[in-house]
């Protein structure tokens, strides 16, 4: 079981003209992970602050005010929450092995297991090029797995993929979630992807992540269309 509690979280930044822009204010949210909810999708409109929230959760950005608690504790100094960005983030100047071992403090003997697990066995010495988004996502995922995290943040990483690559990448995330103790938080503006990957979808309404509702995607009595309609109704309210 794992829980993220967001308390009175605000985030604003100064643009190039020095004008402060509010992204969200006093955000309150509990995100609860368990065996049935290992992947939680966050669905919110474009430019609502999803990426900022994901970056704050993983520790890349600092909030303006408020706190985030992980299992009722503030994020400890040595806790790493890997962030997978929207655009591919495997480093083209490192090969697959070097990319995956990038964040590791010491040489990890399990690196070949990780490479095998993410389906890149035989590609250890390959360099990621711009044209293969699926390949690059696998590398980023492997790099995240190599630091033994509890939680991985995926920030709409499937946005630019074609349907086949996206489907393979979603399946890989599902496989990892099912076969490990890892949890995923996945932010997207694509309602289908949110439902496809998430065990639950946290639906945010409004431009500033104003209010939210959790929708379970594992309700066997509902079809995907019914879940989509339920989410659309929530957004329209």
């Amino acid at each position: 079981m794992f829980e993220i509690e967001i308390k009175k979280l605000s985030f604003s930044f100064q643009n190039t003209n020095g004008i402060s822009k509010k992204i969200f204010k006093d955000l309150e949210q509990k995100i609860h992970f368990d065996k049935e909810n290992k992947i939680i999708s966050i669905y919110a409109p474009f430019a609502s602050g999803k990426s900022s929230l994901m970056k704050i959760i993983s520790g890349i950005e600092k909030q303006t005010s408020g706190e985030i608690y992980f299992n009722n504790l503030k994020k400890s100094e040595d806790e790493i929450i890997p962030y997978l960005s929207t655009s591919p983030s495997s480093f083209p100047w490192l090969n697959v092995s070097e990319n995956i071992s990038f964040g590791m403090k010491a040489k990890n003997p399990d690196i070949s297991k990780i490479i095998d697990f993410i389906g890149l066995k035989g590609y250890e010495d390959f360099y990621p090029t711009e044209d293969s988004l699926g390949f690059r996502f696998r590398i980023s995922l492997g790099r995240a797995l190599a630091v033994n995290p509890k939680l991985i943040v995926i920030d709409d990483s499937f946005k630019f993929m074609d349907e086949v690559t996206k489907s393979e990448s979603l399946q890989l995330c599902r496989k990892i979630a099912d076969e490990s103790d890892l949890y995923f938080i996945y932010a997207t503006s694509n309602i289908f992807d949110a439902i496809n990957l998430g065990d639950s979808v946290l639906v945010f309404r409004g431009l500033h992540l104003d209010s939210s509702t959790i929708v379970s995607t594992k309700n066997s009595l509902k079809t995907t269309d019914e879940i989509i309609n339920q989410i659309l109704d929530l957004i329209k309210k």
């Binding site: 993983s58 520790g59 890349i60 790493i80 890997p82 960005s85 964040g103 630091v147």
Partner: peptide
């Protein structure tokens, strides 16, 4: 985003 990904892996 390369820097973001890298920073998330280090304290």
């Amino acid at each position: 985003n390369y820097f973001d990904a890298a920073k998330s892996l280090f304290i």
